[in-house]
């Protein structure tokens, strides 16, 4: 018994000592980066512990950074189109571009126009996908899903869920109204108000990632506007009828990037983390993360992913999809506030 106790105490002490020795990397992330399958290889290789905090929406992420002390955060996941906003506020550190080779990336996913500011690289894209239409092909006519009009036709009233994120859904409603995402300014918001309210009236619920997945998986709804492979891929084994498409009007391309936070005291470790995430192995793990799937920005991940995983990600269709997708709207502060007001109005009415 005494031996057992002594062993336990030694084990605990060893654990504490190990924890005390291990370095910490603090990462402000989206939920896909919280997957232990993704973090563990890096933690073991560098004897570090990656502490993650999830956030939702760039505005919230930037506010978190601004209310933190320099050094609190080392790396950050951020929408590639929002890198400029963060750089403008002095929140991101320059990246050594020569150490982050993007030559094996999908060219459309590099998004250097957004991640490189005045010739300095501040972030590197890591994963992309589409906000478009996800549906249960056993319950709807897949041909209908090729056109956004179907969602306003009345045929699917009460069977639609709206993904609860204003930027992609307003972008999709804009596409339906013939407005490009880049032109979605305050004046255009007036144009899409009515179709947005009609869409809300035709929908059953507005839900977050988990709520949307649950609604589609349980048959509560048959169509999700704003959904895509990131939502249906994790449910594929459970229900292969869950599918997604990019309709004639187009879809929205989301691309997340990874950056080093200005003021970090561990720039080398932060860079190593970015190198790991953008490596073929890290990319494959990130692409198939337990929270949501998405295309790896680095094509080389294709050598690590299985054929089945690539089929679920629609690997071979990417050239066509990338050609038809538009980037997220990039609103200025006032337009962003107007968009959120419109979204709140929709939720509340």
């Amino acid at each position: 018994m005494a031996l057992k106790h002594t062993c336990s105490i030694l084990a605990v002490t060893a654990g504490l000592a190990s924890a005390a020795q291990a370095e910490d990397l603090n990462a402000l992330i989206w939920c896909d980066h919280a997957d232990p399958e993704l973090l563990q290889p890096f933690e073991e290789a560098h004897d570090v512990r990656v502490n993650v905090k999830e956030y939702e929406g760039t505005a919230a992420g930037l506010t978190l950074l601004e209310q933190s002390r320099p050094g609190d955060w080392d790396v950050m996941v951020i929408d590639a189109v929002d890198v400029g906003r963060a750089v403008e506020r002095g929140l991101l550190a320059p990246l050594p571009a020569d150490q982050l080779n993007t030559s094996s990336y999908f060219p459309e996913a590099v998004l250097a126009d957004h991640t490189t500011i005045d010739g300095t690289s501040y972030a590197v894209t890591e994963k992309f996908g589409y906000n478009t239409i996800a549906y249960n092909k056993a319950a709807v006519d897949p041909a209908d899903m090729q056109n956004l009009d179907a969602l306003w036709s009345g045929k699917y009233d009460g069977r639609i869920a709206i993904y609860d994120y204003y930027l992609p859904v307003l972008g999709l409603v804009g596409l339906e109204a013939g407005i490009k995402t880049a032109d979605l300014d305050a004046a255009a918001l007036d144009t899409i108000r009515e179709p947005l309210m009609k869409l809300n009236a035709a929908s059953k619920q507005v839900s977050d990632v988990v709520g949307s997945q649950t609604a589609l998986a349980t048959g509560e709804v048959d169509v999700l506007i704003g959904g895509g492979e990131w939502l249906t891929a994790v449910l594929n084994a459970e229900n292969p009828d869950l599918d997604w498409t990019i309709p004639e009007q187009g879809g929205l391309l989301w691309a997340q990037s990874l950056a080093i936070v200005e003021g970090t005291e561990k720039p080398e470790l932060a860079l190593e983390f970015i190198k790991y995430i953008t490596s073929p192995e890290g990319q494959a793990r990130l692409a198939t993360s337990s929270c949501y799937w998405g295309m790896p920005a680095n094509k080389a991940a294709g050598d690590v992913l299985t054929d089945e995983q690539k089929a679920i990600l629609r690997w071979d269709d990417q050239p066509d999809y990338l050609a038809r997708a538009q980037l997220y709207p990039v609103p200025d502060a006032d337009t962003d506030a107007a968009m959120q007001d419109l979204w709140t109005d929709m939720l509340q009415n």
Binding site: Y55, E56, A60, V206, L347, Q348
Partner: peptide, 23 residues
């Protein structure tokens, strides 16, 4: 948040919207 389907917002949901989305 889970059961209401976001079809109307209560005060705590509005508070979370201000924090989570708008900062």
């Amino acid at each position: 948040q889970i059961l209401g389907g976001n079809n109307e917002l209560t005060l705590p949901q509005l508070i979370m919207l201000q924090l989570g989305r708008r900062g």
